[in-house]
Each structure stands twice: as structure tokens, then as C-alpha cells.
């Protein structure tokens, strides 16, 4: 009986998700699309929870729905004043894209169907369970992300870094909001310490339960978003030099830890078994700070005030001028 209820629940969930995704894409009003997209993120989080992947559910809720939603809404505000008239209706190219998407969906379904006929469904999970004891953590997701496939995570941190470098190179940050109403600032003042504690908790608990650097980083970034909404222009970020250091800390610590084990005649990122847990925690703390800084800078939408003040010292400029003249001679 309860089995049947769950099937029913899953069907409703799946239908809602597909429907919401369709409406979010099909809607002609950008603002409505963004709000529906945030709703879609929450539904996806529920789906991950149903699939017993609470780590992903947390990440989806915090990043997919939370921070991505905040970024999109901030971007929407930029659009005000720009003519937001959508291209009229259902054009031929749009129809072509739809057809292509449906074709891909059919192909993908065919491939997955065949794959599931072929495979028993265990895949690498068995290997992970077998070697979990050597990884230094108990949570298998953290073991995969920071030990078995730590190199992927390192490159993913680099992807975040690349994205924020792109944001920083395109233009200056959005102007700060003026301080909000008393209710808002009061709420912010009240929530910020709680969120910081929660972020620390998520980071710590990642070793044995759902949580970890990405979720904790998103939580800290939420602090920055709240501060910014409450009228704090720098959104809690420290000065330029410190922010730069925070931004590179995650990858830097990751690589340095990975390289230093090589002195003990090990492969890159091959942590010694007895201190693996500690090394993973160190990497995760650094990664959390970097992810939070990157997401906060992305929310600012560009270079904070004074970001490039120290890029070109006067003396440097003189030297370069001399070199240029030399080159032309």
C-alpha cells in the first residue's frame, strides 16, 4: 500500500518538475521565468532527497535554487531600463530548437533504456564502499569528492575560479543598495550569525553526514547576499588584497596538499591513510572560504570598488614607457 503511495508521489513529483521546467522556459516574461526556475530548483532538491541523495539535495537547494536564484534576480534588476520586449512569439528557429531538444530527449531515453538493460546498476558504488575505510572520512560522497576523485573537485574549484575571473574582467560591481527598512536590517543582523554557524556545521558534518565545502560555501555566500541586501556595500568581503587571497586559497591549499604528499613518494593527492581525514578537512575549510568569496563576488556582479587600484603603480608605468620607446627604435 505505502509502496503504491510512494509511486504516486513520485509520479506527481516528476510531472510537476517537467511541467514547471516547460513553463519556466516557455514563459515570455523573463521575471516569471526566473521565479519559476527557482521553484524548479526546490523541486529538484526534493527529487534528490527522494533518491536518497541528501548531499545533492542540500547542494541543489543552496546553490541551484538559492544562490543561482539570487544571481538571476540581481541580473534582472540590471535589465530594468533595457527594452525587455521578447522576440515575437514562436519563430521558426525556436521550433527548430524544440525539435532538436525532443530528438535529443528521445535519443537519450533510448540510450539509457539500453544501458539499464545491460548493466546491473551497481557500478562504482561497490568499489567506493569497499575502499571507504581508507579514505579518511565516513560519508561516501565526501570520500569520492575529496579523495577518490579529488582531482575532479580540484578542477571544479578551478571552474568556479574561472567564472569569477570572468565576472571580474567584464565590468565594475553593481552600485550598492541603500540601507533597507528597519525590519530588513534587523532580520539580517539576526540571521547572519546563525548562517555562519550553520555553514561551519555543514562543513564539519561533511566528514560523516551530508554536507561539505560546496554547501557550506553557498551558505556563507548567502550571508554576503543578505548583507548586501541589508545595505552593506562590501557584502562582508574584506579589503582587495585579502579578498584576492581568499579567492585563491581553496585551489592553492588543495594543490599544495596534493603536491606535498609527493615528497613521501606518493602520487599527486595520495593522502597518507592516517592523516587523510585531517588533510581533507583542511582542504574543505580553504575551499569553503574560496567558494563563498567567489559566489559573493559574482553576486556583486563585477569588480568591487578599488579592485584594480594596485595593478599599475606610477613607477611601473614609467618603466614600461621606457621599454615601449626602446621597442619602437
Amino acid at each position: 500500500m505505502s509502496e503504491l503511495l510512494w509511486v504516486l508521489f513520485d509520479l506527481v513529483l516528476a510531472g510537476l518538475t517537467v511541467g514547471l521546467a516547460w513553463v519556466a522556459v516557455a514563459t515570455r516574461e523573463l521575471r516569471r521565468g526566473v521565479l519559476l526556475f527557482v521553484g524548479l530548483g526546490l523541486l529538484l532538491a526534493v527529487i534528490w532527497a527522494r533518491l536518497r541523495a541528501p548531499d545533492l539535495a542540500l547542494a541543489e537547494a543552496a546553490i541551484g535554487a538559492g544562490i543561482a536564484g539570487a544571481l538571476l534576480i540581481a541580473a534582472l534588476r540590471d535589465e530594468i531600463g533595457v527594452s525587455a520586449e521578447p522576440e515575437d512569439g514562436y519563430t521558426a528557429s525556436r521550433r527548430l530548437v524544440d525539435l532538436g531538444a525532443i530528438g535529443l530527449l528521445l535519443a537519450l531515453s533510448w540510450g539509457l533504456l539500453d544501458a539499464f538493460l545491460l548493466s546491473d546498476g551497481v557500478r562504482l558504488a561497490e568499489g567506493v564502499a569497499e575502499r571507504l575505510g581508507e579514505s579518511g572520512v565516513i560519508n561516501p560522497v565526501t570520500a569520492v569528492l575529496l579523495n577518490f576523485r579529488a582531482y575532479d573537485t580540484l578542477l571544479e574549484l578551478a571552474v568556479v575560479f574561472a567564472a569569477v575571473l570572468g565576472v571580474l574582467s567584464v565590468g565594475p560591481a553593481r552600485p550598492a543598495l541603500e540601507a533597507g527598512s528597519l525590519v530588513l536590517t534587523g532580520l539580517v543582523r539576526w540571521l547572519v550569525p546563525i548562517l555562519v554557524v550553520v555553514a561551519g556545521y555543514l562543513l564539519w558534518v561533511g566528514a560523516h553526514a551530508p554536507g561539505g565545502a560546496f554547501q557550506a560555501g553557498a551558505m556563507l555566500a548567502a550571508v554576503a547576499v543578505l548583507l548586501r541586501l541589508g545595505g552593506v556595500a562590501h557584502a562582508g568581503l574584506p579589503g582587495t588584497a585579502a579578498t584576492r587571497w581568499l579567492l585563491v586559497l581553496g585551489i592553492g591549499v588543495f594543490v599544495i596538499v596534493g603536491l606535498s604528499v609527493m615528497f613521501a613518494d606518493r602520487a599527486f593527492l595520495q593522502y597518507p591513510g592516517d592523516i587523510a581525514g585531517v588533510l581533507i578537512l583542511v582542504i574543505e575549510i580553504a575551499a569553503t572560504l574560496s567558494i563563498a568569496t567567489a559566489l559573493a563576488l559574482a553576486y556583486l556582479g563585477g569588480r568591487p570598488v578599488g579592485w584594480e587600484a594596485d595593478c599599475d603603480s606610477p613607477q611601473h608605468r614609467v618603466n614600461r614607457g621606457a621599454a615601449d620607446r626602446g621597442g619602437d627604435a
Binding site: 533597507g180 527598512s181 525590519v183 530588513l184 534587523g186 532580520l187 539576526w190 540571521l191 546563525i194
Partner: peptide, 16 residues
């Protein structure tokens, strides 16, 4: 408690 605080504040903000 957190949802209470958030919903009360956001309702207030929307209304304002």
C-alpha cells in the same frame, strides 16, 4: 522559528 522570521519580514517588505 527561522521560517517565521523570514516570512514575517518578507511579508512586511512586500506589503511596504
Amino acid at each position: 522559528v527561522l521560517v517565521l522570521a523570514a516570512s514575517a519580514s518578507s511579508s512586511h517588505l512586500i506589503a511596504r
